[in-house]
Design a protein around this nucleic acid. Sequence first.
DNA 1: TGTAGTAACTGACCGCAAGTCAGTCCCTGT
DNA 2: ACAGGGACTGACTTGCGGTCAGTTACTACA
Lengths: 227, 227
Amino acid sequence: MGTVERKEREKESRKESIIDAAQKVFFDKGLLLATMDEIAEQAELAKGTLYLYYHSKEDLYLAVMMRGMSLLNDMFRSDIDARAPFLVTLLNLSETYSKFYEEHKNYFRMMHFFETPQFHKQVSAEMRHSCDSVAQQLWNIVIEALKQGVRQGLVRDDLSPVEITIVLWSNATTLLMRIDAQYDLWKETMNIDLKHTLRLSTTLLIESILTDKGKEELHRILNTRYR
Amino acid sequence: MGTVERKEREKESRKESIIDAAQKVFFDKGLLLATMDEIAEQAELAKGTLYLYYHSKEDLYLAVMMRGMSLLNDMFRSDIDARAPFLVTLLNLSETYSKFYEEHKNYFRMMHFFETPQFHKQVSAEMRHSCDSVAQQLWNIVIEALKQGVRQGLVRDDLSPVEITIVLWSNATTLLMRIDAQYDLWKETMNIDLKHTLRLSTTLLIESILTDKGKEELHRILNTRYR
DNA sequence: TGTAGTAACTGACCGCAAGTCAGTCCCTGT
DNA sequence: ACAGGGACTGACTTGCGGTCAGTTACTACA
């Protein structure tokens, strides 16, 4: 009699439907303006029930965010699985991150929240660890790609792949955040196109981590791409 | 009879003493855990009085933060006023920013908050503009320095000084934030010294924006500095 | 089929903190 | 001496995150 299993499945789908409701409200209002009452109403449940499934509003917020991280993870994975030459893959990963921002801004903004530790007072340890492990997966994809690049003699072997990943990732993230918050501001006051700035800084950084052989190949690729 | 002027001065010093109190509490508790009641108590005023001087808790928070920005502004100014050769000045500005983080972490963290627009729901337009203008001053210091570098043929003239500033500034800021939040984490799990990573990325970026002449001079300077 | 046991769910309630405002105090100019 | 007005007060209102005693509905078993 699979009653226990069915209960298990129902509980899981209840958790999912709560996330659905929370996602709608958080996307709409953001963390601060969203209320648990509104999420409860959207989920057609009493507020107390939400707390049977998630410890706090922040936990629920992170549960939604993790959907975004998984999505980005899948997008990265498919870049890797395409098995293109290393430099093509690296450029693709970079473009994929921009695309993720463009197509899933709400998730992107939520992920930014996770990087802001001063707002984590109410997050349960389990949720924190879940997030950390998914984030680690994301990092590892890029780190592994770079190790490949070192092995192929395209990336300088005097630099740590982990450090390079941190630099590339941080650079892309802050510029995307700035695009999100200040794109028009910079356009109007300084006539700066931040999307161009992102491409610029990415190119400068990638170039600076490559060997001579790598640089040559990079320029070959860039010439065929943007002929 | 300078009564009006005296009143003016008193009002100004009252505003300052409120900021003093707020600073103590915000440094101690952070934005979320600090309460207006506690700030009022610290200021030896009733809570209502605080609202005669600042529109909201967030406004008060930003008033404290602006002290930090002014401080950084002064530190940058004194690097410029030292009238060292361009590349020395650029390296000094970069080191000054790290020093600002090390010596004034509380201010640094508050400035990070200002960059996070989703938490600005309660900020008054005036306060927002005050902050923007002080921030603009900071940017301009670096932008002007870079224009100098272009004029001297040390910085590539095919790049916009504004864009370079955005890239250098963003890079330093995110890495310092990461140092602040995750230094030990990266040290323990990946054996990465994020302070080294910051120096690395700064060097890579600076090198990549220089002309050949600039690169030569940079290496001469680095060799004498870290002999 | 009746019933005891239990897991899921409910929503009135609590505590806390931001922000308000009617009233008080005190300074100043006449 | 006193009227006018600005500075200040703190009890109160509002709104929300989180709780928990009570209710409902399902299941297992006699």
